[in-house]
Amino acid sequence: MNATYIQNSIAQLKTEIFMDVRHRTLQKYTGAPVLDENQLFYLLVPFLNGEEWQQEQREAAITVGIVYAALAAHDHIKELDATSKEQQLTVLAGDFYSGRYYEILAMSGNVALIRNLSQGIVSRCEHQIKVYEAKQRTVEQWCSSISNIESGLIAKFFELYALHHYIPIMEKSLLILRLEREWAMYQRGQKSLMSKVLEQSALQTGATFNSVLQDKIARLKTELLQVIAQASFLQSDVKQALQARVDASIASTNG
């Protein structure tokens, strides 16, 4: 398995997701669904590692991707002014994608995954909304929320198909990648709501956003390398790919 094979697998999954949620008007005004290639990669790791991947698992992975696209659409709604046609249709795009994931799983009778993903969405919304709550939280608590936002739904999918052993690697990797994105944006002067609350929590302990994030990323990377090294169920080329994904992100962030 080489980088091209991985990239082709991600591209194919992306195409299948696009096909399942295609909608002429929505696409015209809101563009293609927003998909995070890193999330798609970790969604596919069990497949790349040779786990059983029948039509059911393939369809399940597609629907997980659709749910992420639905929630990502709603993340794009502006806090105070969503009156443009593009924003109005973005609200509906998210709702349409949610309807489609449910419809696909209902047609194949996969009620268990509908249940798992619904629970995952409930939890994700509860974490997403915390940035609007007045309650002071620690950096660790914010990282736990980020982890849920980034990887909770993939974890729900892995749990259902007895792929639990992939969860720690996926969670740590996606957390590292998100923190690096937040860090890079912060350096460019673009503070997201999440980086603002992280900064507040860092300041509460007398630290800075930069130091807290860099420490956290470094610690997570060390832990991740250990987990990957100890993961006897992973094929060596998959281990390399996992390592490369995080390294590539660091390179692009620094670049």
Binding site: A70, H74, I77, K78, V122, E126, Y132
Partner: peptide, 13 residues
């Protein structure tokens, strides 16, 4: 709006 989106998504889920 964003709180409304998350609340709606929560209720829907």
């Amino acid at each position: 709006n964003r709180v409304a989106m998350y609340t709606g998504d929560f209720i829907f889920a």
